[in-house]
Design a protein around this nucleic acid. Structure first.
Lengths: 142, 142
DNA sequence: AAGTTTTATGTTATATTGTTGCATTAAATG
DNA sequence: CATTTAATGCAACAATATAACATAAAACTT
């Protein structure tokens, strides 16, 4: 979503060391306009580097834990990852095509949730609200 | 959610044969007041029957396919299953506690989504909208 | 700068969840 | 009752993620 990010700065901001692998993972996620799975990311990186699959998982976990990326669940079995919302990346829902497995970002306007009541009445700690639309994307429609 | 269901009638209504295993799976899901994973369901059934793990998965798939139950994704790795919405079971969001892994149904009022725009502008086929709140439930709060 | 500690990465093994293929049992149909 | 079809069980497999331990790289200490 956010093509011009300074990924070094992002890492620095949360006190993480800057390594090649971390930058590459962030870059792949950042320049993609929809969320990717760990396998997607690993495949993209394998083209020009030799990063290990497990390292990808570890970096993803680290970045999620530090709030730089977010982990989305899908109608399928894998998690997908996208850059965390920021000033030029507002909260939005996602569409998951159960045929091709691709995630798509929906515009913030197309689907909005009113969470104002929830915060008042729910007794636990709320960390995030995930809205996902499942179906068949236009490319996979018969 | 819906304790007094006639599960035989539900199966009949969608032209599925009535078997003991199917009834038991439906009963477990139906009498539970929050969605359960396949493993949860299997464990509950193993107490007084000997149903196979794979059979549980197959029945769940069948029931989802026929619209009797719905499959929810969580912040974790397993799918959870609950009875499909009906007249006394309105559409609602779910809360997932990432500590104990339990799902909770939220009241329909506490969180509502406006999907009116989406249907108009989205070019693919929309099958469902899933809203999940992740966090820590009150029992797991420190 | 050399040695020590800490952190990041790689490698292999394992866990979890779900699915497939095939044999067997049970039910429905003729 | 014989034949076909459907349901279940069992064993193997597949996909995704994590854990345990070894090694490499970086940071820190003297």
């Amino acid at each position: 979503m956010n093509h011009q990010c300074d990924y070094e700065a992002l890492l620095k901001a949360v006190n993480l060391r800057i390594t090649d692998n971390r930058l590459q993972v962030l870059q792949v996620i950042g320049k993609n306009h929809y969320p990717l799975s760990a396998t997607d990311i690993h495949h993209k990186l394998e083209c020009d580097s030799t990063i290990n699959r497990v390292t990808v998982y570890r970096i993803l976990e680290l970045l999620v834990g530090n709030g730089l990326i977010e982990r989305l669940s899908t109608g399928g079995r894998a998690f997908y990852y996208g850059l965390t919302l920021n000033h030029n990346h507002r909260s939005h829902a996602h569409f998951y095509c159960k045929k091709c497995g691709q995630m798509e970002c929906l515009t913030p306007e197309s689907l909005t949730a009113d969470t104002s009541q929830l915060g008042k009445i729910f007794p636990g700690r709320i960390e995030k609200v995930e809205i996902r639309v499942d179906g068949i994307c236009k490319n996979c429609l018969p």
